[in-house]
Amino acid sequence: MAETLASSRSYYLVFFALLALTFVTIGLTFLHLGRWHTPIALLIAFSKALIVALFFMHLRHGNRLYWLALGSGLLWLGILMTLTLSDFLTRDWLSY
């Protein structure tokens, strides 16, 4: 493979960052964050996922097409959730 080989040290650094984020998110669940509880937890989850994808899955210097595949998956997931919830969230706006 033509891609540059990452040093094993960088993998360990990534791993410790992931561990740290895990402890943070579990720690935060014992605090009273109110309606920010879930958004913050999901934000941390997204950052961890991004780190895994960029470094462990080599998306950082991956082919454009890998990004395209991932992007389509996310876009379609977005369509599925948005339009389904568009029904659930607005169903009670008008009562018959």
Binding site: T25, L42, V52, F56
Partner: peptide, 27 residues
């Protein structure tokens, strides 16, 4: 490398299951 991608993906899914299932509200 290919199955490594699969493995990491399964890991990523768990990273979302943790907050969605275990961290729904203040514990």
């Amino acid at each position: 490398e290919m199955w490594g991608l699969y493995w990491h993906f399964v890991d990523i899914i768990w990273l979302f299951l943790l907050p969605l299932l275990y961290l729904v509200s203040t514990r």
